[in-house]
Design a binder for these strands. Structure first.
Lengths: 371, 371
DNA sequence: TTGTATGCGTTATCAG
DNA sequence: CTGATAACGCATACAA
């Protein structure tokens, strides 16, 4: 504080003199070099400097070189704020995700960061922590930060998209990924959850399982709705009656898996398979069941979802749906940037479906060596 | 794939049309409302509006209210670029990390995001992918983005801090966390790796183990240097000879763990314990050893580091060092913001040590029921 | 190919 | 308490 006070005092005093110094003078911050400085030094106009720095073909190679060299030498760096202010663009993408610390999400983010950086964009990441309220607040913040575009994966309980209105009103492109929603003129990037769930369930049936429990989350999110649908469809196609009480809804945490295990154990007859909408929860459930002395896959087979690294650590290794997070991040970011680039045609792309696949491991082996 | 192809085709077609629209013209973006608009409507000066919006005590409550209401009504939002340009502040923090998709790192980021957002700061996250070169590039980008401060966890092979010079030269505060480095006037946030490793090793010894292998990474990073030191120290204190060939250096990936397992198996006599500098690698090693028929903990005991969720999935559950990632992120961010707030005293804080603890699980049980 | 002039939306200084 | 006005650094329409 001492410093600041002194500095203000000093500055006030300075105003007496005709020599008017600006905000960043003295030694408080070395002065930034601007295009004015470059122009003055080379005796040319700032316009030329600006153009040269932007690699405008209209500037001669020679002056370009001169300017580039001097810029380098003087440690010039362009001021994004001045530029953004002028161009009304921010080169910034906003991201809203439920939470960053899951393997899947952090992979997605890694993919986004990868393409964003290489395209000269910057990412602002915010977490909704699975709460609509925080999601709204994040949306507002990002809106005020003037992001050029938005990448969103919805929270569990979001059921209105009203908080994204400001963006669509201003024609700021919006992309939903993974946990998507129907929203006119905004693209979705996801996998075919229905098909994946269908395959998972069909696989269990083909292993001789009939009493298949499904553990999932709130039916507000497409991913869980579709997975449930796929599960139902598979049952129907194999003429297995769907039982409401075989669907366990929770928050898909590892603890939720343990809770589900307790419920499963109460069922009579004991189910012979479980299809879980997420690996973490599957793992929690498997651990709990094993502690109860239930054998996997002999008594109960398991299929998860996500191909999280834990799926190869748990014993037996977990059969699951592989699901390219990193790639999903890349695709979503790339598509968003394409829309920003003015490829207006891009706008009509409504949905991008990524490939997913069933990875079969021991947790779903059939009891007898048939397969 | 079908979709993607169609999409490309469609886009190409769009490019044929001569109708060249500028990025933001026509009705593509409704005009933003500025303080000028507010001022005009209320017949007051922009100066008053600006002050009112900043909640300057010098403005009367009444006019403040009027202005706030109108702003709300007209959908005014302040323009950060204009403000940043004017104030020379960005309210943005840069983050450079090796990679985001590990449980530990994503927890750290979550913690940082948490305090940054609540303090009105925004985070720009970039990954070095464990490469100095990318780390340098990231530093440059963040420098050009004029971040107010920087949070860094170093890549494996970084051995010069020259790329951070621009920041320190401009007195932009720099905080290292976890993978830190000695750098005059920059704060470090980390745990006491030496002590943690000492405890881990001592624990193994107390369980009756003598031939303890240590798996770690390059000795360029403090965390690995310190953990090795702690390991050595513990051996020394228990009068166990340190053996160079018991130290296996790799990249701590799960595969590296498997490789290490192969080497361990060759050793004769077989080591009776392994202390690994990271849980993931420990898990890889355990799985590989188990496949070779080696029993854990009977033949070889294990201790990991990080308390990653996998440590409670692997069988037997992994004894490890618990290590608060989320909190570390919060502390680092909070400290950085404090420095920006002008708390000059903060500057002299050189190192912040977070608590860590040994979590004992089955992987390190002693052979006989003594403990 | 280069230069001149202007405005982008704020904040902050100085003068009422 | 309020107003007028000058920067902040850059991009660009228009002139030359």
């Amino acid at each position: 504080m001492k410093n600041v006070t002194d500095y203000n005092f000093f500055e006030k005093k300075m105003y007496i003199y005709p020599c008017k110094l600006h905000v960043n003078d003295c030694m408080s911050r070395e002065k930034e070099v601007t295009i004015y400085d470059l122009a003055r030094k080379l005796n040319i106009s700032i316009a030329t400097v600006s153009r040269a720095l932007a690699d405008d073909p209209v500037v001669s190679k020679k002056t370009k070189k001169k300017i580039a060299d001097l810029a380098q030498e003087m440690g010039y760096r362009s001021n994004n704020f001045a530029r953004n202010l002028r161009t009304q663009k921010t080169n910034t993408l906003g991201v809203i995700i439920p939470r960053i610390n899951s393997y899947f999400m952090s992979s997605v983010i890694a993919g986004m960061e990868n393409v964003a950086t290489s395209e000269g964009y910057t990412l602002i990441i915010s977490q909704s922590s699975e709460s609509v309220e925080k999601e709204k607040a994040n949306a507002t913040t990002l809106f005020n930060n003037r992001v050029d575009g938005l990448l969103v994966s919805l929270a569990y309980d979001t059921d209105s998209l009203a908080h994204f209105e400001p963006f669509t009103k201003k024609k700021i492109p919006l992309i939903f990924f993974d946990r998507t929603a129907d929203h006119r003129d905004s693209t979705c990037v996801l996998i075919n959850n229905l098909k994946a769930a269908y395959e998972a369930t069909t696989h269990l049936i083909s292993q001789g399982r009939r009493r298949i429990v499904h553990i999932t989350a709130t039916q507000k999110r497409n991913v869980y709705i579709d997975r449930l649908q796929g599960y139902k469809q598979a049952l129907a196609d194999q003429h297995i009656r769907f039982r409401e009480d075989y669907v366990i809804v929770g928050n898909l945490s590892q603890e939720a898996g343990a809770d589900a295990a307790a419920r499963i154990r109460q069922m009579s007859p004991l189910p012979d398979a479980v299809f879980v909408a997420n690996d973490n929860c599957a793992v929690g459930c498997m651990i709990a069941l094993k502690q109860m002395g239930i054998r996997i896959p002999e008594d109960i087979a398991f299929v998860g979802f996500n191909n999280d690294p834990v799926s190869t650590v748990i014993e037996p290794n977990l059969t699951t749906i592989n699901y390219p997070g990193y790639e999903m991040g890349q695709v979503a970011a790339r598509n968003l940037i394409a829309q920003l680039g003015g490829a207006s045609g891009t706008r009509s792309t409504n949905t991008i479906i990524l490939r997913s696949e069933l990875v079969i491991r021991e947790s779903s082996a059939s009891r007898k060596p048939t397969s």
